[in-house]
Design a protein around this nucleic acid. Structure first.
Lengths: 343, 343
DNA sequence: GTGAAAGCGCTAACAG
DNA sequence: CTGTTAGCGCTTTCAC
């Protein structure tokens, strides 16, 4: 155990603790000669001194800790970049993340919350694995908090979410630009921000291009996974579509499978575009899948940024009057690969 | 800002801070009447009191924090369960994880290390995304630390890793039990714990079953990804193998692809078993892939357990004399699905 | 320029 | 049974 304290340093360097503190932290507004500064620091490193963040935090009144609660981001197959983005941004501001993955368990969430507050986190990010509406835990109000990849029912907390509409728009536009006019859409039937938003984008792109919206081209599948895509294939092909926009890459993967079993090929027989850019899938399908990425890293980064901005803003208002904070939309990047043919 | 302190509680409840402290923490060895306890706690909750972990940690001399440094676990597509396991176990012991994902960057690692030590973490887990040998960062020695999913060159730090040999053994045995005798193995050519271990297990199973080892059945691919499996298909089929053990699920996925393009089918034309149980792939291939799982959750859990055990053990010896701690092997569970046919 | 000293909020002897 | 008090290690105001 290295229990070298500032006192030890001060004594060894022949200065007072105050001076030692200033030297160690290189406090610019302490006017001590460079020589002293250097001497203290040298002594410190010789003795293997290390600041005690507990004591420091207690004295200064801040912890430099930011809480990050997720319902599965840390352990989900592909949302981890959110954490990376958050961490990088926090880091940049000299803060460190206290991460707890609740797995969606309210009990754990409650406890995590308690833990973080006890540790005097300077802000709290509450994030969801999948973009959705959440019931923000009671208590999140009254704390500097922001929602990431989810939004509150009442819009009382600032939120940072992917621009699903924009994503659907770019995916469909791409198909349109390649000359497609009959574009099927395998969508999830549950009303999620993703299914609603992407459909909206799809319709918007169609309308922009002067293509009439044909509801029969929209296949609704309960889940949006490999099975759905596999199952939906026949229906899609029956519509005579020359291209299909899949709700996500997993759906596209299933679609590829089914298609291949019928001896048909992407993109010759039909063009495909996915969503999510789940690399294990999209980058390795044959042919590689053109898709729309989720801006995970940016979600994390902007979440922290929003948090810190709010923190500075001492007015820290829990959302103006009406209670309708609009979520901040983060664009979804198009990832072009080989699954679209011009016609 | 809730800045209700113990003092406030004590005053409001008409007791001393000491008594308040005991009541709040429900200290069993403080002999105060239940009535007082209750009163204090009630006052505390009424006033919205919350312990200050910084002050508490400083006074008690421990932080209840455990550092978790990873080179990508948090952000990797499928290793996140390690964190979940670690977190659950830490939690069970009343500790909380301070996680930093370095992305393999030494600079960040260094800083993370510093950060954690300043925060007086009670132990440090150093984990790798992929099972490998690491150069444990200088400074890890002298701290209560354990390696997870990686091991030190010199075996000076306790390590917890998956049992690759056992995994290769069960995969191959399963094929053998289904009656296969000519079993190909698409392996990665780099000498990693995975490639070496799985091959060893494969050979061991063969030998157990009295099947001669035929080197020509082992296909070595530089990487072990979808492309490898895709590419290796021809070679595998040319050997006349009736089954193939793929180094991982991604390889199996590529193999499936290539096979289907030739109009052949799993498992009728050839049985396949993978490794990793990367669900996005294995559970959704057609037919679903029989594979060997990585014990991610357990790695995390056991890592923390080892750490805490070491911590208790005040003798905390940096590995006995010779310097050869054997890594703790965690079994890899077989996940049986539909890609094996009896012959 | 530098030091003394008063906290930060809590715990844990030690008294009573 | 309960209160007093001396720290825990550091920051920061205020004197010198």
């Amino acid at each position: 155990m290295d229990m070298v304290t500032l006192q030890d340093i001060a004594r060894a360097a022949g200065v007072s603790v105050a001076t030692a503190s200033w030297a160690i932290n290189d406090d610019p507004k302490a006017r001590i000669p460079q020589a002293t500064r250097d001497r203290v620091r040298r002594v410190a490193s010789e003795l293997g001194y290390r600041r005690n963040a507990l004591a420091r935090g207690l004295a200064r009144g801040h912890s430099d800790l930011i809480g990050f609660i997720s319902d599965g981001v840390a352990t989900s197959p592909f949302a981890g970049q959110v954490i990376r983005g958050a961490q990088d941004e926090a880091w940049r501001q000299g803060k460190i993340l206290l991460i707890v993955d609740t797995g969606g368990d309210r009990k754990i969430e409650e406890r995590a919350f308690e833990f973080m507050l006890e540790r005097r986190v300077e802000g709290l990010v509450y994030s969801s694995w999948v973009h959705r509406r959440v019931d923000a835990p009671v208590g999140l109000a009254g704390v500097n908090a922001v929602l990431v990849n989810c939004y509150d029912r009442l819009g009382r907390l600032p939120a940072v979410v992917p621009d699903e509409v924009g994503g659907g728009l770019s995916a469909t536009r791409l198909l349109l630009q390649a000359g497609h006019r009959r574009i099927a859409f395998i969508n999830a039937s549950a009303r999620t921000p993703a299914s609603v938003g992407r459909l909206k984008g799809y319709r918007q792109a169609l309308s922009e291009a002067g293509v009439a919206y044909d509801p029969s081209l929209v296949i609704r599948e309960k889940e949006a996974d490999q099975e759905s895509g596999y199952r939906a294939m026949r229906e899609v092909m029956a519509t005579g579509a020359t291209a299909v926009f899949c709700h996500n890459d997993r759906t596209a993967m299933g679609f590829y499978d089914a298609l291949r079993e019928c001896g048909q090929r992407v993109p010759d027989d039909i063009s495909v575009v996915g969503f999510d850019n789940q690399e294990v899938i999209s980058a390795h399908l044959h042919p590689a899948l053109t898709t729309v990425g989720l801006p995970q890293y940016d979600l994390g980064r902007l979440g922290i940024r929003a948090l810190m901005a709010r923190g500075d803003d001492s007015t820290n208002h829990p959302a103006a009057g009406s209670g309708g904070l609009e979520p901040q939309l983060v664009p979804c990047p198009l990832v072009v690969r080989d699954s679209i043919a011009r016609i």
